[in-house]
Simulated assay, not measured.
Amino acid sequence: MTENRAPVSAYFEPVGPARYRPTIRAQGAWNPGEIHFSPLGGLLVHEIDKHRMTQHGAVNTLRLGRVGFDILGFLAAEEIEIQVETIRPGHTIELIEARARIAGRTAAVGRAWFSAAGDTTAVAGGAPAPMPAPETCLPWSMRETWPGGFVESLETRVARPPIPGRATVWQRTGTVLVAGERASAHAAYIALVDTANGVAVRQRPTEWMFPNLDLTVHLHRQPLGDWVGLDTTVTFGSDGQGLTSTVLHDAAGAIGRAEQLLTVRPLGGAAAG
């Protein structure tokens, strides 16, 4: 990981074709030697976007509808290589896969479904009610609960004080995804979604571990603006599993949902395999 020098304006710095070095702003919360998955998820989508641009050019009528990530192990704060391929090509439906390789192994995989855009205004409906506007919400610091450079990079506002297992928060960042590169609105948005598992903690992370093994995002509308709204509920089961469920918003209203599977165990217990 690069040294902490101010200002750090990006989560990743390009070091070659599809190769990136994380900055201190990508630092994780569970371990200072790892990166947070949230910006890595955004980076995977960013590389998927670049791959699709080489295939389709600037004229592209497909919209991101779902992206599912599997986190395959420790995300070391080292150079990252992204490998992308088209799994299912098509003019109206397309599936793209991206793999992040760190320290010689595949550390995370993302698969994104795209589908054709069209005017469905006449039948639109069924979305949850909007969250209170960010401007009406109070500032709140996640740093009281979580350490790390990524958490430090976030501006957070709360509609009401979080309680264990429940939170309604807005987040945005002044840190760009990749230095010198412009990310799409959906890549920049997804780069903040994985924080949902940290905004409504049920137990203190100094006493319990509850890392997520995956992240699945479904969108019924494309995100707009800088703010990411997380209306989040966390459930712990009785046999070591949990689920973080989030209704996703932007400043105009609800745009989709996110789910994260958790492995729950006392701090100091057996590490995940």
Rank of each mutant, 00 (worst) to 15 (best):
Q203K: 15
V59P: 00
N212C: 07
L40D: 12
A183Y: 03
G149N: 11
D250F: 09
N212S: 15
D250T: 07
A100M: 08
G90I: 09
Y189L: 04
T121W: 09
R202A: 02
A133G: 11
A77R: 04
R172S: 12
A179Y: 01
P161H: 03
V8C: 14
R143I: 02
L177C: 02
A254E: 06
A122P: 01
A116M: 13
P211H: 06
G73V: 05
A107E: 06
V45E: 11
V59M: 10
L230Y: 01
A188T: 04
S153L: 11
I80N: 01
I82K: 04
E181L: 08
I71D: 03
I93H: 10
F37D: 00
Q27G: 02
G225A: 12
G33H: 13
N212L: 05
A122S: 13
G149R: 09
C137E: 00
R66W: 06
I255A: 06
V15M: 07
H218M: 12
M142C: 00
D194C: 00
T61F: 10
G90Y: 02
D226R: 12
V176E: 15
W227H: 04
L177Q: 01
E155K: 02
R257K: 07
E34G: 03
E85T: 13
L262I: 08
G33M: 07
A258I: 07
L248S: 09
L154S: 03
A271V: 12
A271E: 13
E81F: 04
H220I: 07
C137V: 03
A6K: 11
V201G: 05
I255M: 09
V169E: 09
P32L: 08
V45G: 00
A258V: 03
L40I: 10
L177W: 01
V217D: 02
I190C: 10
A26N: 10
A251Y: 05
